[in-house]
Structures are given as structure tokens and as C-alpha cells.
Design a protein around this nucleic acid. Structure first.
Lengths: 233, 233
DNA sequence: TAGTGGTCTAGACCACTTG
DNA sequence: AAGTGGTCTAGACCACTAA
């Protein structure tokens, strides 16, 4: 092996990717350790370490102390999705954003949410239903529950003009959250708001956020038929 | 400000997250530069740099040279999804994996794929349709196109027992790919294979992979109704 | 126990971008 | 022009774990 000089961790990542995809380093095989690679590429071990660490983070390599680094046997590639604000998503696609408040009331949440948030039966919290429009056409239907116990200021918020999505971003920080994606047939109500045929197939995103064990908000967004989320690996 | 001693970049990340979520550093505000933070936390600038870089990668901070680092105004949180092999996904949920080859033929691909792969009209490539089962129940329907021009060895592969998914992992490395998620009403054929009512709402994943500008495979997977993908932010 | 990755340091230089 | 982040280095010690 002649020693190739590689500039920087990014170039090193590319070279490793090349060796993996060219089967020079086949799946499951161990690759040289950091020290040897640093020698071969004429850079410091720190640089090699960063390159390999980042490749391990996306699932291309597997690393274990003492054992070494090897090419992942089953490429569990990780895709990253940008969870944007709906307004931005609409505006980025070149459409004019519009917003409609459909309903806003204090009411008892569904049982699933009561359990998730550990609420006593009968406790009422804020429910906001709204519609996001792209060029005046329905883009997504939002059904949001806001924990007014942890966030009493939400009771005084006006969701007529500013949507609840953005009000929360400004007023309700969160420490962590959970997102899940699924698909669902539209009910009569959903079909009506989204202006689609009954039983249409909708892309659904559920998101819940917490602030240190205290639930903040839980929202379900129904996207119009034809909507898709895209990413690269 | 008293100087707090923080151990390691991970603890530093936690502290920054805390300051952001507690509004000590509100959205849009600039935070101290790396040198000052290193002083405050009693660690090296390198450590601060790594912590802030990783927080910027997930969208919590925004960094620009000369301007400085600030808390993201619009929290475009990035969620990472693990794209696993279907077999693993089924087995991980405690079900027994099963596989059925439905169809396998050389045929002309749909126009969309012809354009994506820049194929001349009339060119025939390999199409494999199969069903992944969980406890003998339909879990996902797979419709795969394999570029037999770039990958002639696929013609000799037997997809009766080993599924094409795993054959490709072993035999067809890729350099990059694209994934998109959407939802779709099931057609008669899809409903039949998945054993669901016609017009059911299916979660659909489209994935295409390339090896240096040469298309390798393009696959569409229809999941059974009720399927969902989950992640955390 | 020995070998590997994981992290940290202090310092240096570079690249970018704002004023 | 100057200040900020981005990267790299050489060396050190630590943490984990396979043998």
C-alpha cells in the first residue's frame, strides 16, 4: 500500500465510503485501526477518528473498543428528516400561506392522551383545530392539544390570526419529543376540511413534546393526499 | 457569572440545551463565543466547539463565522430515522418472518422510472414483486426494479427463498440514495396481496439507490394499514 | 491484560463573513 | 480589517472489552 495523502476529515470520509462501496472493504470486514489509517493518510489520529465516528453515526461502520472498526454487515442507514414549521414548508414550495382557525375549546382529551399525559379523568385541556392553506387550498389539517396546566398562558392566546404552531414555538420551549408517521383513511370531517373524497388516504404526523417530564403539546397533522416527505441517504 | 466546571462535551451539550429550553438563551439570541464558553466552563475550546457543532447539526443552534452562534429562531429539529431491513423490522417486533415471491420478470419499467434512470423506451429490466410476512400475515408488499444493465448478475439470482432485499445488500453496494414517504389508497391488486379492504390507506416508502450516477435499484414498499414509523427529537 | 476507540488539551492556522 | 467558527496537530490519558 502506498501512502496516499488526504486533506481533511471530509476527504477521508469520502475515501472510506469509496473503499466500502467498491468492496475493497467488504461488509463485515475489519478495517485498519485509527493509528494505522493516520499513518497511511498522513494525518493525525484525531482527524481519522472524526471521519470514522461520523461514518459510524450514519450506520456505515460499527466501532467497538478493543475489537476495532468494521464495515456494517447490515447497512442500517440513518436518514435525517427536517421537521419544519408547516408555514415554511408551504412557502418553500412557492405557495402563499393561509391559515384558518376551525375550533378552539376546553374539553376532555381522548383516553390515549389522558394516559400519555397521566391526566385524571374529567380534566379539561385546550384543543385547537386549524387548517393550513397553500394558495388558498387545504394543505394540512391540524388537531392540537395543549397542556394548559403546565402552560396556563395558552388560555389567553389568540389563535385567530397567529396559528397555534407558531405561538407554541415562541412561548413553549420543550426539552424532548416524539414523532411518528403513519397513514390513515380520512373521516367525513377530515375529508370535508381538506376538500377531498371521503376515505382518501392521508399522510399523518403525530408529534408530542415535553419539558422535563411535563407534557406540553400533542398534535396530529393530516396532510393532503399526494403529500410526501423526502430525504437522502 | 460564576464559572461552572463541566465535564466533557456531552455534559456541555446538556447545559446548553438547558439554557435554551429555560429561555436563559432565548430563540434568536446570540450566545457567548467558543473562547468565552471555554473559559466559563473550564474546558478547552475544542470541547466547546464539538458540543456546539453537534447542537447545530440537530438544528438547535445556528452558527456563522464572524457573526457568532445563536439559538435557532425556528427550531427546525432534525429527526433521524433508522432505515432497517424489513426482515429485521418484523423480527424485532417479535414476529416470525416469512417471505413470498409473487412475480419476477424482465419488462419495460414505468415512464417515471425510465426518466429517472435515463433508459431508452423499450429497454427491459428486472421487476420483482414480493410479500414480507409477519407471523404468516402480510406485513409489507414490495415492488422492486433492478437495473440489470448495471447489475447483470441479478439475472442469475434466485429470489424464491432469499428475498431480493437481502440479495441486493450482499451483492449491490450503493454510494447514495433517496427515500420518500407518502400514503396511498390500495388498488385491487395491493389489497388482495395485503389481505385488506380495497381502498385501504397504506403507508408507502419509495427508495432509490445509485452507485456513482449509475442507478442500482428502485423499490416501493406498501406497508399494512396501521403501520407507523417512530422517532424522537 | 493489552489493544482499541473515546475524549480532552493547548495551541495553531485557516476560512469565512460582517462591518 | 478583524472577529468568529472550522479544522488540524501531537500528545496524553481514559474506558471499554475481547482474548
Amino acid at each position: 500500500m502506498t501512502s496516499t495523502t488526504i486533506k481533511g476529515f471530509a476527504a477521508l470520509k469520502d475515501e472510506v465510503r469509496r473503499r466500502v462501496s467498491s468492496r475493497e472493504w467488504p461488509p463485515g470486514s475489519f478495517i485498519p485501526n485509527e493509528t494505522d489509517l493516520a499513518l497511511e493518510f498522513g494525518c493525525s489520529r484525531t482527524t481519522v477518528s472524526r471521519a470514522l465516528r461520523e461514518l459510524a453515526e450514519i450506520g456505515l461502520l460499527e466501532r467497538r473498543r478493543k475489537a476495532g472498526t468494521r464495515v456494517a454487515l447490515t447497512p442500517v442507514r440513518k436518514a435525517t428528516l427536517s421537521i419544519t414549521i408547516i408555514r415554511q414548508e408551504i412557502e418553500r414550495s412557492g405557495k402563499e400561506y393561509g391559515y384558518l382557525l376551525l375550533d378552539r375549546q376546553q374539553t376532555e382529551p381522548p383516553v390515549l392522551l389522558q394516559k400519555l399525559w397521566r391526566l385524571d379523568a374529567g380534566v379539561k385541556i385546550l384543543n385547537v383545530k386549524s387548517l393550513h392553506l397553500g394558495n388558498a387550498r387545504p394543505f394540512a389539517l391540524e388537531d392540537r392539544w395543549i397542556n394548559t396546566i403546565a402552560l396556563p398562558s395558552a388560555l389567553g392566546a389568540d389563535f385567530e390570526i397567529n396559528n397555534s404552531n407558531e405561538w407554541l414555538i415562541k412561548n413553549a420551549p420543550f426539552s424532548h419529543g416524539e414523532i411518528s408517521f403513519t397513514s390513515k383513511s380520512s373521516t367525513a370531517t377530515e375529508s370535508n376540511y381538506l376538500d377531498v373524497a371521503d376515505g382518501s388516504s392521508l399522510f399523518v404526523v403525530d408529534r408530542s413534546t415535553w419539558m422535563n417530564d411535563s407534557p406540553i403539546t400533542s398534535v396530529r397533522v393530516f396532510y393532503h393526499p399526494g403529500y410526501y416527505m423526502k430525504t437522502t441517504i
